[in-house]
Every structure is written in structure tokens, then in C-alpha cells.
Computed example of a mutant assay.
Amino acid sequence: MRLEDAKPKAGSKRRKKRKGRGIAAGQGASCGFGMRGQKSRSGSGTRPGFEGGQMPLYRRIPKLKHFPIVNQKDYTVINVRGLADLAANSDVTLTSLMEAGIITTDDGPLKILGDGELSTALNVKAAAFTRSAREKIEAAGGSCEIV
């Protein structure tokens, strides 16, 4: 088959109706639009969403107040409270927490949050720390390292 052989199926293409060209044309006078009214006038009629002057739906509903953060970073988060049961002077990373069963899913780099208390010194290696988490780990004698 060649490009010049490609033709539409017989009967699928129809001529455009020539409205308002006399009664012999089949759509003369009012052209099938009825007698009077907005939909019988020339032009495109009403725009999409127009409700006859009533306040349209897109203006009645509340608008979007806040836009989502583009390229938001997703972290695997854990509070300082979750690190309290670990042995003193142990290295804390995402893999060691998953092996210990403290974290069950890897949702991205590790972030330490500051809720809870810590009494043992730990060497924590994470992608991010909150200010309170860093203070609590260092107050317990541990160290914070950003990976």
C-alpha cells in the first residue's frame, strides 16, 4: 500500500450544510435554529460554563489557596525517641535502622526529628537534622554527621 492509495471510506466524508441559502437548499430562512432567541443569532452562542447570567460554577467554588512545592524532597523520618533504645556509641544510618527493624520502609534519605529524649551517645549519619534533634544528640555526648 502506498500513500496515494490511502483514501477515506466511501460515504464517510459529507459536504458541509450551507445554511441560509434558500428553501431549496433544505436549511433556508431560520436554518433550523428556530424563531428567536440567543441560540438562533449569528456567532458562537454562549461561552463554555455560561449559565444564563447565574453565577457560574467556576466562580462559586473556592479557589486554590496554596500551591504544592515543586520537586519536594521526601525523607525517611525518625524522632530522637526512636533512637533511645540503641546501644551507646553505635553508628546510626538508614541501613542500620532498617536492619534493627526500627524503620520498615525506605522513603528516601534519613532525617532526624527532635521529638523525645535521648540519654545515650550515638554517632548519627543522616541527610538532615532538625535544630532540636542536633542539640539533643550532641547534649547526650553523640555526634551528628550530614551524609
Rank of each mutant, 00 (worst) to 15 (best):
G11H: 13
V77S: 12
S42D: 15
N71W: 00
N79A: 13
D5T: 06
A29Y: 01
G52Q: 05
A84L: 04
I69Y: 04
M35E: 09
P56R: 02
G114Q: 02
D85C: 14
R2A: 12
G22P: 09
A29L: 05
R59N: 11
K9C: 08
R36P: 00
G32N: 12
V92R: 01
L57F: 10
G43Q: 03
E4L: 03
R21T: 15
K7P: 07
K16L: 05
L57N: 09
G101A: 06
N71I: 07
T95F: 12
L97G: 01
R47E: 05
I112K: 02
K39P: 05
Q54K: 11
I61R: 15
I112D: 00
Q54M: 08
P68W: 09
A6I: 15
A84H: 03
R14G: 02
D85A: 15
L83M: 09
R81N: 14
N89I: 08
L57R: 10
I102Y: 10
N89A: 13
F50W: 07
M35A: 15
K17D: 08
I69W: 00
A25C: 11
A25S: 13
R36F: 05
G114A: 09
G114R: 07
K16H: 10
P68I: 06
A25P: 02
Q27I: 00
R15L: 14
N89L: 07
T46F: 05
G32M: 05
E99C: 01
S12F: 04
T46K: 14
M1K: 05
R21I: 07
G20H: 00
S30D: 02
I69Q: 01
G43N: 07
F50L: 04
K111C: 09
R36K: 11
L83V: 06
A6V: 15
L97Q: 03
D5K: 14
V80K: 01
D91N: 10
R15I: 02
G26D: 05
S42G: 13
I112M: 06
I78H: 02
V92F: 01
A29P: 00
N71L: 07
G22W: 04
D74I: 14
L113I: 10
L3F: 12
M35R: 12
I103W: 08
V80H: 01
G49D: 08
K7G: 10
I103A: 07
C31D: 00
G43H: 05
G49Q: 09
V77N: 14
V77G: 06
T93Y: 01
S90G: 03
L57D: 08
S40M: 13
A87E: 07
C31T: 06
S44G: 01
I69M: 04
L83F: 11
M35G: 10
G43T: 12
R18T: 11
R21V: 10
V80M: 14
G116L: 00
N89G: 14
L64D: 14
V70M: 06
D5I: 02
G45P: 03
R47Q: 08
K9Q: 11
R15N: 14
G34E: 09
I102H: 02
R47S: 08
L57Q: 12
V70H: 09
P56T: 00
I103V: 15
E99V: 12
D107P: 01
T46Y: 07
R15D: 14
D74G: 05
P109C: 02
K63P: 02
H66I: 05
R41E: 06
G116D: 03
G20V: 03
K111E: 00
S96R: 06
G37C: 02
G52I: 06
V92Q: 00
G37V: 02
